[in-house]
Write a protein that binds this DNA or RNA. Structure first.
Length: 705
RNA sequence: GGACCUGUAGCUCAAUGGCUAGAGCGCUUCAUUCACAUUGAAGAGGUUAAAGGUUCGAGUCCUUUCAGGUCCACCA
């Protein structure tokens, strides 16, 4: 053994060894209890970042349970990440002066497919660098034909049970990117805009003033509303207002959603261009008129304004209202929040569009039951409340996306009767009218619709027996930031399809932050590349740096300094091994000469007894922590023991004895040390394996805890 | 606006209501032909945000205030 441990020389070699011996390949073994984790599938549109390195928790669970004698499965998969990936690819096209509209659907799809294939192989190599004990024989991709088949079946089942409906609803639409987003994907940004006070004449006499940030939508107004408790306007209810510029007549109605104190207390209602107005429109059975199109331009219902983009239309309308004397005043410093596109940053347009929706309430109620009945345990506990609150407030889920890259929705429209039918296979004839005249929906599924099915869909493709053995999975380990987008949906859809919880436990980890606790982002320039850290200090050091001294579920402040500190810990473990190895060689050479010991025999015996006692206590506590999913504590315990008790105290005290050939002392030290290597293996698999092989023939993975 | 979380050493964070509140990094002094300078020993550094309460006992539980963060809802 060298005086320094060099991860660069051994890690890749060790990993290859594990792979060749298929240590991570899961089998059905009814003599053993199963332990399974499905890897949250990384998006196949880039490379891994530090957040992915947090999957170390899963590796710890897998290796620990394997050494505890369970049959383990850690299933690898990758996500196509529809909208996100297409966006990344479009940026790439733009650099070459091209756009997605230069290609046919099939061409674009094929190009993105190749791009994704490249990323997949990068990511897989990176997962290996991290030392993850993934089952490489069962790699899955969200667009595998067998997975798509299951996704289609789920859609059809949901449809048949009345949980899928198609509706013309307001959606968040980016006119720049050409796709809709679910409410979860909307990013709100603060913006200073003008608030315009506009006078509407009342047919019966007089006038009423409204305040709006969007005068250009007045063509789509179908009512004016006021609060029924507002004495100022009570007489106006039921009268008819006249829209300026186009002189259209609309009713004045009362709705309690109006804030009396805001603006003038009177609001123009534009159901097809505002979410709140849409609800009002439904409540009052108002007419709904779309005046802005999906290209972001005003349409033919706006007369001379037709063809203008939203912003120019606004300016023109304002100018014309000023000319006609109907613009009362303009407040230019109005601060509000605007929903914007997370891809391009432009303001999202609420627009009416026919989309597929999932009726969430019945599904969410079942998911809540799973939590309440402890079919699914939430760890750390404090996230339970949050998950329940999320399930309480889930609104119907829009699963249509207007992108090419994704799983195309298996819904077909009968052209003759304008009715829809669902078919998991490409239909030969229309299932509505019996003719051939039908067309498939152009849209693809929201990525999360397939992700929501990941635990059961992946296992189902491995056959019924495999599914029965490993499902429900033991743990779902992921970041707490996607509780709503992913965890909640997996529970809802998972239960719907299998009538079981998809996972018995949810274990949530925190976010990786920079040394000052700030979010890591490219724009801040504080991003740490996990592969760079591995190249410099080894995967073990990085893994432990993410876990040491943290609270479960809490954020981790990661610095290169911390990784260095952990590298030192790895080296310490290495050198303890080296001490044992060197002395063992000496003992072997001289065939245990009985040399006069400088130390009193009784003292030595007492020390060894103390060591044994302390080690037993340590191991007991370690198992308690590990079984309680308190990994950081388990690690801290062994860290403290091996460094500050075992090395600093016991080795120092027994050093002279050992060097003088005391076999008993060396033997005790060695056996306690090897036990500690096993305890550390789930955390730092590489160095423990490398040292283990100095003393043992078999891999440390073949040992048991 | 609603909910939740956090506030502990210079920095980042630990601490089932129980002994002298700990670790990593940083800092000071000393050691060094030794398994390890990626080391060891010793040390400085704390009114646990503030106030009040419960308790034999509070960093921990309760109330209030202050400060910061996260998620959700988003009012023209």
């Amino acid at each position: 053994m060298d005086s320094k441990y060099s991860p660069q020389l051994v890690e890749e070699k060790i990993y290859k060894g594990w792979e060749e011996k298929e240590f991570f390949k899961a089998k059905i073994n009814h003599k053993k209890k199963p332990f399974s984790i499905i890897l949250p599938p990384p998006n196949a549109n880039g490379s891994l970042h530090l957040g992915h390195a947090m999957f170390t928790y899963e590796d710890i669970m897998i290796r620990f349970n394997k050494m505890k004698g369970k049959e383990t499965l850690w299933l690898l998969g990758l996500d196509h990440a529809g909208t996100e990936t297409q966006f990344v690819y479009e940026k790439y096209l733009k650099k070459q002066g091209k756009s997605r509209y230069d290609y046919k659907r099939d061409e674009l799809y094929k190009m993105i497919w190749d791009y994704v294939a490249e990323n997949k192989s990068t990511i897989k190599n990176q997962l290996k660098r991290l030392g993850f004990a993934l089952d490489w024989s069962r790699e899955k991709f969200t667009m595998d034909p067998e997975i798509v088949k299951i996704v289609y079946k789920t859609f059809k089942d949901l449809f048949n049970q009345g949980l899928i409906y198609r509706a013309n609803k307001l959606i968040n639409y980016c006119t720049n990117c050409g796709t809709s987003f679910s409410d979860l994907e909307v990013v709100y940004t603060e913006k200073i805009d003008s608030l315009f006070y506009i006078k509407y004449q009342i047919k019966e006499g007089g006038s009423i003033e409204v305040a709006t940030t969007r005068p250009e939508t007045l063509f789509g107004d179908t009512a004016i509303m006021i609060n029924p408790k507002d004495k100022r306007y009570i007489k106006s209810i039921g009268k008819t207002a006249i829209i300026p510029l186009i002189n259209k007549e609309i009713p004045i109605i009362a709705d309690s959603s109006v804030d009396i104190k805001f603006g003038t207390g009177a609001v123009k209602v534009t159901p097809y261009h505002d979410f709140n107005d849409y609800e009002v429109g439904k409540r009052h059975n108002l007419q709904m008129v779309q005046v802005i199109d999906f290209d972001g331009k005003l349409n033919n219902l706006t007369g001379k304004y037709q063809g203008l983009r939203i912003f120019s239309a606004r300016q023109q309308v304002v100018t014309d209202l000023q000319a006609s004397g109907q613009m009362v005043k303009i407040k230019t410093d109005y601060l509000h929040r605007v929903g914007s596109c997370y891809r391009c940053g432009k303001a999202l347009e609420p627009l009416p569009k026919e989309q597929w929706f999932i009726k969430i309430k019945p599904l969410a109620d079942k998911a809540k039951e799973l939590i309440e009945k402890k079919e699914t345990e939430v760890l750390p506990k404090r996230f339970k409340k949050r998950l329940l609150a999320i399930l309480d407030n889930f609104i119907d889920w829009n699963i249509s996306r207007q992108v090419v890259w994704g799983i195309r929705i298996p819904a077909y429209r009968c052209k003759a009767k304008n009715e829809w039918f669902i078919s998991t296979d490409m239909p030969e004839k229309c299932q509505v009218c019996g003719n051939h005249d039908f067309e498939q929906d152009e849209d693809t599924f929201d990525t999360w619709f397939s992700s929501a099915q990941w635990p059961f869909a992946t296992l189902m493709t491995e056959g019924q027996d495999f599914f029965d053995y490993f499902y429900p999975t033991s743990v779902m380990e992921t970041g707490h930031d996607i509780l709503r987008a992913w965890v909640a949906r997996m529970m809802m859809i998972g239960y719907f399809s299998t009538k079981k919880t998809p996972f018995k436990k949810v274990f949530l980890h925190g976010m990786v932050r920079d040394p000052k606790g700030q979010k890591m982002s490219k724009s801040k320039g504080n991003v740490i590349d996990p592969i760079l850290m591995i190249n410099k200090y080894g995967a073990d050091a990085l893994r432990v740096a993410l876990i040491f001294g943290t609270k479960e579920g809490g954020d981790v402040a990661l610095s290169e300094q911390k990784v260095i500190g952990m590298r030192n810990f790895i080296n310490k473990i290495w050198n303890v091994g080296r001490f044992v190895e060197i002395n063992q060689k000496v003992v072997e050479q001289f065939i245990a000469p009985e040399i006069n010991s400088a130390m009193n025999r009784t003292t030595t015996k007492t020390l060894l007894k103390e060591l044994d006692k302390e080690y037993k206590k340590e191991k007991k506590q370690y198992l308690k922590y590990m079984e309680g999913y308190q990994f950081s504590k388990a690690l801290g315990l062994v860290y403290e023991f091996i460094w500050h008790r075992f090395a600093d105290y016991y080795i120092e005290q027994l050093k002279d004895e050992v060097i003088n050939g005391n076999i008993e002392a060396l033997g005790s030290l060695k056996s306690v040390y090897l036990e500690n290597l096993k305890m550390l293996h789930p955390f730092i698999p590489f160095v423990t394996e490398e040292i283990w092989r100095v003393f043992n023939k078999e891999s440390i993975l073949k040992s048991s805890l």
